[in-house]
Amino acid sequence: MWNFGMIVLFLVFFYHLLKGTSDVSRNILDNLKSLRQNPDEYHFRSRESSTTAILVTLGVMAAMALVIIINCIFLHVVYRTFQFFAYQEEKKREEMNKKEGL
């Protein structure tokens, strides 16, 4: 479920980035800047180009894609481990049935 939500969020970001009518890039850049600023200090707002905002958005999207890929790999490893243990248990059960048949 988590991976599905992350993929949907990634696609929404990508759609808005390609569409170009939304201020998603500007909002992401402003939110990232607000994380490092002290609210008690006064800073002059420098005007950034839209290219900077788009590059920051692409960086955030790349990080999100990396998280999605890592999550998918983790789920794959968990699934393969489950299959391995299920196979081992089935093999043990077959051996027990053979011993009981003798």
Rank of each mutant, 00 (worst) to 15 (best):
N27L: 10
N38D: 15
K92H: 03
E100A: 12
F14M: 08
I28H: 07
C72H: 01
N3S: 08
F74Q: 10
E100N: 14
T57S: 15
I68K: 04
F14G: 02
P39A: 03
L66K: 07
S22H: 13
F4M: 03
Y79P: 01
L32C: 13
D40Q: 07
R45D: 12
I68S: 03
Y79L: 06
S34Y: 08
V78G: 00
A62W: 05
T21W: 09
A62Q: 06
F74W: 05
D23A: 05
E48M: 11
I69G: 01
I7N: 07
I7A: 12
F13Q: 10
Y87C: 01
P39E: 07
F84R: 01
K33Q: 15
A53V: 01
R36S: 14
Q83K: 13
A65K: 02
A65D: 00
N97H: 03
Q88N: 09
T51Q: 08
N97Y: 00
I69T: 09
F14W: 12
P39V: 07
Q37D: 01
Q37M: 08
Y42N: 10
R36Q: 12
M64H: 10
K91D: 03
L11I: 07
F4Y: 03
L17A: 12
K19D: 15
V12K: 10
I54V: 09
Y15F: 15
N38W: 02
A86C: 00
S25V: 07
N3A: 11
R47I: 12
F44N: 04
M1R: 02
S22W: 11
K19M: 03
V56C: 08
N31L: 12
S25W: 05
N97R: 14
N27Y: 08
L9E: 15
R47W: 11
I73A: 05
L11K: 05
E100G: 05
L11H: 06
N97M: 01
F44W: 06
C72I: 11
I68H: 03
G101H: 04
S46Q: 05
P39I: 08
I28N: 07
S34R: 14
G20F: 06
V60G: 00
I28C: 10
V56F: 05
T52A: 06
R45K: 11
V60F: 08
Q83L: 13
T52M: 01
V12M: 14
L32Q: 09
L55R: 02
E95L: 10
R36A: 14
K91N: 04
F74I: 03
M6A: 15
V78N: 00
L17D: 13
T21I: 12
Y87T: 06
Y87L: 07
K19H: 13
L29P: 00
K98N: 02
L18E: 04
M1V: 04
S34N: 15
Y87G: 00
N38V: 03
V67R: 10
L66V: 06
I73K: 02
L32F: 14
I70S: 06
